[in-house]
Design a protein around this nucleic acid. Structure first.
Lengths: 149, 149
DNA sequence: CAAGATTGAAAACTCAATCTTA
DNA sequence: TAAGATTGAGTTTTCAATCTTG
């Protein structure tokens, strides 16, 4: 099978995409660190905050975040230790567990969010035209449709 | 200071972008793992392979990859242990060190590359129109210009 | 036995401290 | 003292094994 290597334009786009990601990640990490949060912490907090009662089954949270349950379990232990979340029993299934955002978790999230959103805006969203934003969204959705189970 | 939250379209694009990244990373990781490589390994190998003599000063390699020297140093120790790269002295500066791709490193890279490129093609590049590819590249370059040093 | 989740050990990454030469 | 790089300790992530309930 002959390999179809990337054309110059394709290779350039791929490399630029990779570099953008890396730089944006560094910037976001820096921004969140100022509020005492890691990227992972913030993902957990925002994902929970979007749910009714800010609570979720652990397995569901893990699959939503595309994390392994093991990773999430370890991470929740640390976050619970800092008072950001709490583990509670699942109603109707004694095997299951539910994580809930604590008041403190809410407070920290609300404190960090404005600066985070501004960071995303300044360094990503606001650098695009409407057409580019739309192109990005379209492409992203196609990739997600293809790879998302 | 009032926060400019993301508009629905912006939020959707941001979320889709994040999910695309995560899924694409998982797929690429899976593909490379079949050849015994991590994403980090592959980045080191390809970056080195693009240089004259497949050799680079360690500090230069670190900054090119946007890694800390510490991370790279630890990683090179492991890669050297597997025979993928070799540390050598830098000509003209006895403080410096140079990493070189070994023959084995080349072999592994050439073995893994075709499948990796196909993975990137199938799940990313080939899912875009020419216009979308161009939009992506433009945006990525803008972000890189803004955040890169 | 399968599902839901946790655990412990090993690998990878980060951070600050250290070592060596310019 | 600064530049180039490595080291060790602590944290996070991964991988496989385990525990508990359906």
């Amino acid at each position: 099978m002959a390999v179809r290597w990337l054309e110059p334009d394709e290779y350039d786009a791929w490399r630029a995409y990779r570099r953008m990601r890396a730089l944006l990640d560094l910037e976001i990490t820096r921004d969140l660190a100022a509020h005492g949060l890691s990227d992972a912490d913030y993902d957990v907090l925002t994902t929970l905050s979007g749910q009714d009662g800010a609570r979720m089954r652990i397995g569901e949270l893990a699959s939503r975040m595309l994390w392994t349950q093991s990773r999430l379990s370890h991470h929740l232990t640390r976050m619970a230790g800092r008072g950001l979340v709490e583990r509670t029993a699942a109603a109707g299934d004694d095997r299951g567990a539910v994580v809930v955002l604590t008041d403190h978790g809410w407070t920290v999230l609300r404190t960090a969010a404005p600066s985070h959103v501004q960071c995303v805006r300044e360094n990503f969203i606001d650098l695009m035209s409407v057409g580019q934003l739309k192109a990005l969204a379209t492409v992203a959705h196609r990739v997600v449709d293809r790879l998302g189970r």
